[in-house]
Design a protein around this nucleic acid. Structure first.
Lengths: 243, 243
DNA sequence: CAGTGGTCTAGACCACCCA
DNA sequence: GGGTGGTCTAGACCACTGC
């Protein structure tokens, strides 16, 4: 049943169970087989099954009741269902049921701004590769995102960095690094005229402002982003599980 | 070492390690003892230690490197450090280093609004207990929060519901229920005049709008909230760990 | 190569729920 | 009481890192 070599047993079990829920093999509101039964059926230990169920529970797909059982959440339609909790603009658009695409607005090398110097721990005026992109949902502009990478961190020349890539792959190919974690700050702003034009907003309504800093496995800040996010168009939703 | 009966060993280990990091017994950037050493020292299994470390890693407090070791994040000052990932207005204010307090603006029983009917799966016009509160950070108003609970879900009369309680305790004491999970929608809005007055905003700057629905262990929607959040004052920050 | 974290197992006991 | 999820353990093997 679980034969892939490269993915962990627990991760494969997660996928299998999530798929059964999505396809209603386990109907909304119904009780799943017990952990022991699932372990026997999948040919893995109970610990692995528990790891999978814990993940599904954290995302709200199942509800666990001690002494009773594990139930499929009957309100699945309310959930973000990202299945890994990571916010990635392309996938946020995909999950909203629309086709994502990216248009590169500009790609320049320029001195770091004051906030970039602070976020990326740079020297004053240190050059950064700045990539400005628009994320479309079904051809409607939803996000205007600007990303800055210290020139010193690039292993490819800026002109070879593929602007169509999601952030983790961008960092992987252009910097040869892996993201360890990132920090998100969420705020509300009134967009300036330029932003409004790019996002084709008729009125001057407020947008979400997402500021992110991505760190690599050496804990060096590798990329910082400043994005204007049209929450009316896309929605920003998260689930919190209360142990 | 780990003797409390009511908390799990893994949870106690988490607290101990977090405390050692906070007090710099494990200095920023330094390597922690190996999992086996910690297990031996704390008198628990390696699995319990791993559970604790996994939690700290998810919040960015430590960085784990296979084949190398576990390191204290040297950039702790950037982290939200909630140590359980749950957003609770009182604790968000506390963690920002300010003194939280609550003022109850109004407590009424009124028919549910259209959006409450939808969020709470009510009948049209069904009565709800509506509690409007202001959360202060060091006596500066930071959040205007409105919470609606179906009257049918209350086990205490509305006038006996303590408006000073955080949301989980409010639900515990007034409804006799426990929160299983909640769903958050984050948006940006321009506050109306009334909201602006309550939050003592001079200009008409945009605020975060948080809409929440809390579900109990029976998966019934118990409470919905609509809050205006001054992100300039408080900040809304989260960490994402990329496995 | 030795030591680290990553994965997985089998088995045990507990707390809890329901019939 | 019998079954469920919640916790914990001991031990094994693997993948990776740094020396």
């Amino acid at each position: 049943m679980l034969v892939e070599r490269r993915r962990s047993v627990a991760s494969q079990a997660t996928t299998i169970l999530a798929e059964r829920i999505r396809s209603q093999i386990y109907a909304p509101g119904s009780r799943l087989p017990s952990e022991s039964e699932l372990a026997a059926e999948l040919g893995v230990s109970r610990a692995s099954v528990r790891s999978a169920l814990a993940r599904l529970a954290a995302e709200g797909m199942v509800l666990r009741k001690q002494g009773d059982g594990t139930y499929v959440n009957a309100r699945l339609e309310n959930l973000p269902t990202t299945l890994d909790g990571l916010w990635n603009f392309l996938r946020l658009i995909e999950f909203s049921g629309r086709a994502p695409s990216i248009r590169v607005l500009s790609r320049t090398v320029r001195p770091a701004t004051e906030s970039e110097v602070e976020a990326l721990a740079l020297e004053e005026e240190e050059p950064v590769f700045f990539l400005q992109r628009v994320f479309y949902a079904d051809n409607t502009p939803a996000i205007l995102a600007g990303n800055a990478i210290p020139l010193a961190a690039l292993r490819l020349p800026p002109e070879q960095c593929d602007g169509q890539l999601p952030i983790d792959e961008l960092i992987a190919t252009c910097c040869g690094a892996q993201i360890a974690y990132d920090i998100f700050d969420i705020g509300a702003v009134l967009p300036d005229a330029e932003t409004r034009a790019v996002l084709e907003l008729a009125e001057a309504r407020p947008l979400l402002h997402l500021r992110q800093v991505f760190y690599d496995r050496q804990n060096e800040p590798l990329l910082c982003g400043s994005s204007h996010y049209d929450d009316k168009l896309l929605g920003l939703r998260l689930v919190q599980s209360w142990t």
